[in-house]
Amino acid sequence: MNALGWALLLAALLAGWAVLDGAVQGGVPLVRAVGGTDDARRRTVLATVAPFLLLGEVWLVAAAGVLLAAFGHVEGTLWAAGYLVVVALLVAWVVRDAALWLRSRLPSPRWRRGWDVVGQAASLALPAAFGALAGVAWVRFSVVGPQADAGSGVAQALALGLPVLTAGLAVAAARVHGGLVVAARAPEALAHEARRRVRRALVPAAALAGLAALGALAVAALGTASALVAAVLLVAVAGVALAARFDLDRGTRRTGVVRSSGPLLAVAPVVATAAVVGPAVLALAAPAAVLHALTWPVLGAFAAVLAAQAVSWRVLVRPLGPRTAVFL
């Protein structure tokens, strides 16, 4: 497999993480809002996203493994440029996991309510940190970084603004996506409230996607042509988000547009980033011999993982019922 193949694998892993873990990132902040003060209701909301936790977060771990083996220089550059963002990502991730696993282990209401607040904060910080890191990648692996270093005012403004924009987009996207997952799996009494939250989040998500598209246009104008692709993608996703809001306002909630708006928004930051940074990242891939030697073990493993995950999704992802296992 050549550098392009490895880059596509990396993008696929990140997109998988964005969709699967995005459900958790967006669902957990709804625990208090949708679940109210009743512990059983809160745990029901948690149960809707619980299966995505173990199945989802490994995609980012695997992506980090591919980054390390095939794009070590990319990792080095990105971590150096966004050192504290990476630390923030790790802290948010670890705290989110701890909050989810530990909150229901002890019966004390104070313990549980405390962890719910912590989990909510960490679940917002996690996509924010990931989105910001994606923005740092936009800057470092396009013409923006060198031009900002050279003193260009426009480039410096973009270097500051892009990570903020992509962070906001990732948070809004997770909110829509997670809310739709909760709405699809929870009993109707809770689903209704989750849908209300999704409806409210769709317009900000569309606006942030539009702004990110403008940012991508600016990057393209400065000289990285591949950012044009990102701009087009982001505009399309913004359109889908607005169409989904239109459908929800009409009361038709089972349309393809509504269903696909969550996953599309969730992968938007990843796909847009892949378009912007793709050419520069490909140029920094590991030597062909290294890539070639690892091809079959990694592709074989990926095939096995896809099979195992496909079986797991079939078993686990269905509306909550009497055979659902509640643990979180």
Binding site: L54, L55, V58, A62, L68, A69, A286, A301, V305, S312
Partner: peptide, 17 residues
Amino acid sequence: GAPLVIETMAAFFLEST
């Protein structure tokens, strides 16, 4: 990097799933 990518892609990915 080779054993570590095998660790994440093959072993840990499947373990968590």
